[in-house]
Design a binder for these strands. Sequence first.
DNA 1: TATAGATATTACATAAATGAATTAAATTAC
DNA 2: GTAATTTAATTCATTTATGTAATATCTATA
Lengths: 163, 163
Amino acid sequence: MNSFLPTEQRIDHTRERYPPFPREPAVLVRLIKHLHKLVHDDANATLRPYGLNHPEYNLLMMLYGTPGGALSASELAESSGEKSANITRLTNGLCDKGLIARTADEDDRRKVMLALTPAGEALIGALLPDVCALLDRQMRTLDAGDQRQLEGLLKKMLSGLTA
Amino acid sequence: MNSFLPTEQRIDHTRERYPPFPREPAVLVRLIKHLHKLVHDDANATLRPYGLNHPEYNLLMMLYGTPGGALSASELAESSGEKSANITRLTNGLCDKGLIARTADEDDRRKVMLALTPAGEALIGALLPDVCALLDRQMRTLDAGDQRQLEGLLKKMLSGLTA
DNA sequence: TATAGATATTACATAAATGAATTAAATTAC
DNA sequence: GTAATTTAATTCATTTATGTAATATCTATA
C-alpha cells in the first residue's frame, strides 16, 4: 500500500496491450481512490476513541458549520454526499447517542430538522483538537503554495465531473 | 452535489467558531472525498451494462495489467486496497461469472493464483473503449500540463499519508 | 377547493465491506 | 526432525451502504 509504483507499472503494461488507454487520467483516478482510502481509514482510527466513524463525524461537522445549526435530512444528504436512506440510518444512530435532535419544521411538515444537542456540541469540542492535528499531519508534505495549487486543480477537475 | 461552495462556507463558519481548524487541509480532504464519489459512481454507471461494478473492474484490470497475467489473492488485496476477506468474496463472484480462474500455486500450496479466462480477456476488450472514453471525459477540463502538475501534487500528498 | 404532481422522509429488503476467528501450509528455531 | 511461528486464504458474524417502494405533506393549477 505504501508505494504507488506497481500501479503505474500496471497502467504502462496495460498501454502496451491497449495503446489508447489514457495514462494520465488513469493514474489520476487511481491516485484519488488511493488517497481517499488512506484519508478515510486514518480518520476512522482517530475518531474511534470518540465512538464515531467518519460518516457520523461528517454529519456532525455539517451541523456545527451551518449558521443556525440546523439542516433537514435532505440538506444533509446533499451536502454530505450520502444517500437519503443512509442519512436516516446514521441520524438514528446519532439520535440514540444523544448527539443530535430531530424537530419537525414548522413551515414544511414533511421536513425533519436536525441540530446538535449540547452533548453533541461538547463532543465536537472535545475531538476537534485531535482532528485538527490529524488534518495538519495528513497535509504535512504540502506547503501553503502546494495546497493552494492543489485546491485549484482539484476544483478544475471537479468542474468536469459535475457538468 | 454540483457546487462545492456550501462546503467551503461551512468550513469558514467552523473556523469562526473554532479558529485553529485548518482551512486548506479541510478543503482538500473534502475535495478528495467528493471527487472519489463522483468518479466511483460514474465508473459504476459505465460498467453496469457489462455486469460489473467498480471493484470487480479494478480486479480484472489488475490482472490484465500484470505481466504474466496472474496474481495471488493477497497480491490482489495489496494492489487493489481491498481487504482479503473482500477479495475472496469478489473473486468468488468473478469465478462464478467465468471471468477469472483459480489455480493452486505449485511452489506454495497456500497460495491461490488468479488469472483472466479467455472470457475475461474478451470482456475487457469489449469494455475498454467505453472506459477510455470515460477517463478522457472525466479529465477533460485538465490539459496535459494540469494533469502532470496534479499528479505530482497528489503523489506529494500521498507521501505524507503512507510514511 | 379538489386534485395531480412533486418533494421529504422512512421502512424494508438486499448488497457490499469489515473484523475476528479458523484452517492449512510453509518457515524458522531448536 | 519436531515444535513453534508466520503467512495465505477462507468462513462467519456483524456493520455499513444502497435501491426500491411506501407514506405523508406540500405546491400549483384548473
